[in-house]
């Protein structure tokens, strides 16, 4: 039986792993659409292990926008403040492709190196 400390540590490491892939997933979600509103990204991730609060997305989107991987346009909204719709830039697509390569290499390497453990169980 794991101790409470170890369960906490498991939780924290899981959190780190999710953090690492969030940028990849958010960029992919944006690349899949012509343009997208942040709450729609949140909806897409809902009920998955990558579910986040909307407040998580705003700093990430602002950072990616400032790095010129994303851009946004203002759209009028019915009965609310104007909305920022995000879309991916050409540099963003290149960046995303690079991230996906890294991700695929990681998945393969992780898979190969965890096989033994799975087979021994």
């Amino acid at each position: 039986m794991m101790s409470e400390e170890q369960i906490k540590s498991l939780h924290a490491t899981g959190q780190q792993l999710r953090r690492g892939v969030l940028e990849l997933v958010v960029l992919s979600a944006i690349a899949a659409e012509e343009e997208i509103y942040p709450s729609t990204i949140q909806q897409k991730l809902k009920d998955t292990p990558l579910e986040v609060k909307e407040g998580t997305l705003y700093p990430l989107l602002t950072r990616l926008k400032n790095s010129e991987l994303l851009q946004y346009t203002w759209r009028e909204s019915t009965g609310g403040p104007p909305r920022k719709y995000f879309s991916i830039t050409d540099n963003g697509r290149e960046f995303l492709d690079g991230l996906l390569d890294t991700w695929n290499q990681l998945v393969t390497a992780v898979h190969q190196n965890t096989q033994n453990h799975l087979n021994n169980e």
Partner: peptide, 17 residues
């Protein structure tokens, strides 16, 4: 609840507040 509290963010390592 929709926006979340700061302790529920932190999923973005590059821009942690």
């Amino acid at each position: 609840a929709t926006m979340g509290r700061p302790e529920e963010f932190g999923a973005d390592p590059m821009s942690e507040g």
